[in-house]
Design a protein around this nucleic acid. Structure first.
Ligand SMILES: [Mn+2]
Ligand SMILES: [Mn+2]
Ligand SMILES: [Zn+2]
Ligand SMILES: [Zn+2]
Lengths: 140, 140
DNA sequence: GTAGATTTGCAACATTGTTGCAATATGTTA
DNA sequence: TAACATATTGCAACAATGTTGCAAATCTAC
């Protein structure tokens, strides 16, 4: 795990630091997406808030994590599993946010369907975010 | 226009007040979606910030406006044109956010395609948000 | 017009995000 | 390994955004 995060950071020309390693591990351990606030809580007392902001920013730029839009003034982040790279994200999968447990899933296997835009519009990114009740919460 | 907003408010069992009428008119005049901050600027000196928060909240609950998720810690709002009602939104169209002019379009004519979820997941809402360059900005 | 209910503005506060800068940690080279 | 140059971090100060309680003002129904 440690050497894993190490590799990821080096591959992206980032120096290996305590906070970057820890935050990256948090994402690897987590089974869903994380909000800034989640990271702040899960790694509390460890890093400054500002460091978390900056780390997330760098990770997004480098294509290590991607963002997920929400309707509640928060942004979620999740590990990129496709081959994303500096300034070029490639994760065109859908996302699912459970209204019950609040877990956010990357639906890696659900590709985003092509959508016909009106003439003149050029799309560079498409987000599909569904919400409802997840598998776990349905079976209860 | 005035009587228009009047009707909308009454139809939704809301008392007709200055701020509600003004904010509703703002949406009607606007050709795109509005963020809370936009409304604050466009109606500055008129209403308290808190009133705007509460008005938007009520409008969403009543199905007068709908939300659009973004990846920048803000939520956008736009008039519902379909027949939405109290607690039951019906606007399943896609949205487009222009990276250049920052205008957000409701693509009323672009229905959201059905997406096959993994077994156990039950979807109640789907947001499709595209970004790129809009028609206007392409032609320049 | 009045009474009762709703809405508003204000104040106070909490949370979230940004910036500059000095101290520290990291990677590199000798 | 030690020293250097560079990148990262933490802190402080600040800005922006969001929330709550409550009294004053406004609205609706009668
Ligand atoms: Mn994802
Ligand atoms: Mn819309
Ligand atoms: Zn769930
Ligand atoms: Zn544009």
């Amino acid at each position: 795990m440690k050497s894993d995060t190490n590799d990821i950071l080096k591959k992206n020309q980032l120096s290996v630091t305590g906070s970057r390693t820890a935050i990256l591990e948090l994402f690897q351990k987590s089974n869903g997406a994380l909000a800034h606030a989640d990271i702040e809580k899960k790694s509390s007392e460890q890093f400054d808030r500002v460091t978390i902001y900056r780390t997330l920013q760098v990770f997004v730029e480098k294509g290590i994590i991607h963002t997920i839009p929400t309707t509640d003034n928060s942004v979620l982040y999740a590990l990129c599993k496709d081959n994303c790279s500096q300034g070029h994200h490639n994760d065109n999968h859908a996302h699912f946010i459970c209204d019950v447990c609040d877990l956010t899933y990357c639906l890696e296997h659900i590709a985003i369907p092509a959508i016909n835009l009106p003439a003149g519009f050029k799309q560079t990114r498409t987000d599909v975010v569904m919400s409802g009740i997840c598998k776990n919460c349905s079976n209860k």
